[in-house]
Design a protein around this nucleic acid. Sequence first.
DNA 1: TGCCTGATGTTCT
DNA 2: GAACATCAGGCAC
Length: 190
Amino acid sequence: MDMDIHEYLSRPASVVAPLLLGCILEREVNGMMLRVRIVETEAYEETDAASHSYKGKTERTNVMFGEAGHLYVYFTYGMHYCCNVVTDKEGVGSAVLIRAVEPLTGSEYMQELRHRDGVELTNGPAKLCQALSINKSLNGHDLAQSSLTLIIWPPLPDQLITQTTRIGVSQAKDVPWRFYITGNEYVSWT
DNA sequence: TGCCTGATGTTCT
DNA sequence: GAACATCAGGCAC
């Protein structure tokens, strides 16, 4: 679709998170084109105790407070990267974690990057970063630009979306800001 | 199938 | 010095 993703995504993360389900990510790496479909997301907002932005802007979370439509990549547990789509207006620390995607094209190359097969390719936030070769060098990347591009797709009907509490958080455990495509085999856990 | 745990380093208190 | 938006392998059942 031809639209300005920055404006489209300039809304609270909890609004954008379900809208990103079904959208496409195109990643170009080493001359290979990889395409995936987003099937699971989580929203993190500034007023949310589970969010990295909750305690204000720091060197790490700077990107979360920037323009919507850029990528926020963080390193965690000593060995994993996770990636988020920055949302909301500039100055507001808000982002949507991409928790799982479904491979569309280039899955052979993802297998090489992951040393895994099938749903294990991309059914988790750190797994999909490995499968798409996403690391800290892409922190702050504009998702309207090449090498990693977000293509907006029309919103899915509510019937196809399941909403639950988030995975792996110790704060704000009761906040229901995890969204996934019901029944999709690449969703990380149910 | 499901629980438990080690790996490993950055960020923040 | 502790916590951490995780993953994979091992072992019990």
